[in-house]
């Protein structure tokens, strides 16, 4: 079960957030609802600290996921400082393939190659173009680990 999808940018801001309700298509008003909440800040803080720790432990040691009793966080960080995060239940395996698709296919085509979308997000700006939102929903809900 995949619970939520987050993207943080190089300025440490949450530029995308999407919650997925269980077993039914989530309504569009759960998009970008939690970007400024404490949950976002805590999540980012945790990822940030753990990434730092990983690379201090050894060179090129990249944080990929971490797990608690109930949840698992899957992470993809690009060299440009974008952090793609999926939160799932604790039993889900490796979602790196899905994270790569979200970046290399979806983000690339609907944000980077979209002349009407910014690529540098100022404070408070979020991703809200429908091609991205719909594309992300499709990729995530069609993933084997979604339900």
């Amino acid at each position: 079960m995949i619970y939520s999808f987050w993207i943080f940018d190089r300025h440490c801001n949450c530029i995308y957030n999407r919650d997925f309700a269980q077993h039914k298509p989530a309504s569009k008003d759960t998009v970008n609802r939690n970007n400024d909440k404490d949950e976002a800040k805590l999540l980012f803080g945790a990822i940030f600290s753990m990434s730092r720790l990983s690379s201090k432990l050894s060179d090129g040691n990249v944080l990929q996921s971490f797990r608690t009793g109930k949840y698992k966080a899957h992470l993809k960080e690009t060299a440009t400082g974008l952090r793609f995060i999926l939160i799932s239940d604790s039993n889900v395996g490796d979602l790196s393939g899905l994270l790569n698709q979200l970046y290399s296919d979806l983000y690339l085509n609907t944000i980077v190659k979209n002349g009407l979308s910014p690529v540098d997000f100022k404070e408070g700006m979020v991703i809200k173009n429908m091609s991205f939102i719909n594309g992300a929903d499709e990729l995530i809900t069609q993933n084997g680990d979604f339900i």
Binding site: G60, A79, T80, V112
Partner: peptide
């Protein structure tokens, strides 16, 4: 350049 770098990284998967 700030767009192109994302495509570069997406296709090569390079890190820093």
């Amino acid at each position: 350049g700030i767009r192109l770098i994302e495509e570069f990284l997406a296709k090569t998967n390079f890190g820093r």
